[in-house]
Design a protein around this nucleic acid. Structure first.
Lengths: 123, 123
DNA sequence: CCGCATCCCCCAGGATACTG
DNA sequence: CAGTATCCTGGGGGATGCGG
């Protein structure tokens, strides 16, 4: 969607202000949904825990994505005053409201994966 | 999602083959979900009807997106033998399975839109 | 009416290096 | 540990024009 929503311009749909499209603007991009997905599994995660779970993500992208999600109130950042620094990220209620949708998409993706798998098995 | 999923590489999540991510590969990009959304409202739509509903989409992107969705069996293409040509697109059962997720995302996006709206009203 | 062929631009996302 | 600062590249997506 990726779902991503892959950024760029928001498509305009005739006859309605489409909130599906609006949502895509907020949760679009390569890493936003994976981050939400990971955060949905735990109460909270530290910066480097997230980085370890999301294989291949760079500091830049993780920071940017988290900042964007924080701006839109999907994620809350808790900075504990410690040396060395200790920062925790967690989903807000608003962010958790997306989990049911992710569950549906996950189940759907699973079925899709298995279908494709069985196709390649045939060859 | 763009959610999108905006294509490119699929993020790898540690410890699990994440089907959320897999799904994003299929429904990612700028126009896929808008197309599914529009098709979910009617039994079927013709090429130019879709083009009219999706303001700003070009022939290239509409064609590419529909082909991709057809490959993944989300959409079925019915070509009626007429002069002039008449082609209809409709969701398959597999495609319709995504509608519940879109509904959740839509409601979530609506709330988000209204929240942002009320914020800008204050200024 | 319904597309495909081409060409091209822009920016999301990556690589690398450095700090409080 | 948790980020910033820079620079760069690939391909997603747009514009235009042609053809069955």
């Amino acid at each position: 969607m990726q779902t991503t929503y892959s950024g760029k311009e928001i498509p305009q749909l005739a006859g309605e202000k489409c909130s599906v499209i609006y949502a895509l603007e907020v949760i679009g991009g390569k890493w936003k949904l994976p981050i939400i997905w990971k955060l949905s599994k735990k109460e909270s995660l530290r910066y480097n825990e997230l980085k370890r779970e999301l294989e291949g993500i760079t500091n830049v992208m993780l920071t940017r994505s988290l900042q964007s999600l924080e701006e839109h109130r999907l994620v809350i950042r808790k900075e504990l005053q410690h040396i060395p620094p200790h920062v925790e990220y967690a989903l807000t209620d608003h962010g958790r409201a997306l989990i049911p949708a992710l569950e549906v998409i996950k189940d759907w993706g699973q079925a899709e994966m298995e279908r494709v798998q069985s196709l390649t098995d045939d060859r």
